Amino acid sequence: MELLKIEEVAKRTGLTKRAIRYYEDFGLISAPERTQGGIRLYSEEDIEKINKIILAKEVLGFSLAELQQYLEFQTIIEQQKSEYRTTEDREARRSKLIEMSQVLQKEKMMIDLKLTRMAQFQEELIEFEQRVLKAIDQLHE
């Protein structure tokens, strides 16, 4: 497995080295392996996780705290999936599915809240634009 220095990770993700270190300090990504000299070394998995964070931040507009919660939900779901696959007991499998469903509902609620806020913001912009266009029309009269 090839490990990459932070400079290469920054190039591949579009983040600054400082942002990558901040994500680590904030707990969004795990502390990477280090050389004896203390140089951070990142795996492809680390890069994938960073790219997921970037996508959630850009597309969903999540704050860092919301990203942290979102990633915690993702971890819980992965654990539940793994436990679901490894158990044969029908009731235990049902329980895992219910737990996954509950976490997914929480994730959907986070996204719904963001969408509601975005819709409100868009409505304000539309109203302001209409007032500006009306003012322009009045100046032409």
Rank of each mutant, 00 (worst) to 15 (best):
A56W: 01
Q105D: 11
I29N: 11
N51Y: 09
Y22E: 03
Q138A: 13
I54E: 03
I50Q: 01
Y70W: 15
I6F: 06
R40F: 00
A31C: 03
L71W: 01
R40Y: 00
I54K: 14
K57Y: 00
M109L: 15
S43V: 03
E124C: 11
E8T: 10
E72A: 13
E141S: 09
T35L: 13
V9R: 07
L64C: 05
L4R: 08
M100Y: 03
F73K: 05
E141V: 03
V59Q: 12
G61D: 06
T87S: 09
D137V: 06
H140V: 07
E48K: 06
E123V: 05
A92L: 12
E2D: 06
Q105C: 02
Q74D: 06
V59I: 14
Q69F: 07
E24D: 06
I39S: 11
L115E: 09
T87Y: 00
M109W: 01
N51F: 12
F26E: 14
A119L: 14
T35P: 07
E91P: 00
Q120W: 04
I98L: 13
E123N: 14
F128Q: 12
Q102D: 12
L28Y: 04
E2G: 03
K49N: 10
A65D: 13
E124H: 13
L133M: 03
I20A: 00
M118K: 05
K5L: 10
E44Q: 14
G38E: 10
L15I: 01
I50G: 02
E99F: 13
L3Y: 15
E45F: 06
R34T: 11
T16G: 08
V132Q: 07
R93H: 08
M110Y: 00
V132A: 10
L28D: 03
D46K: 04
K114S: 05
I6H: 08
T13P: 01
V103K: 04
S95V: 09
R90I: 13
D25C: 08
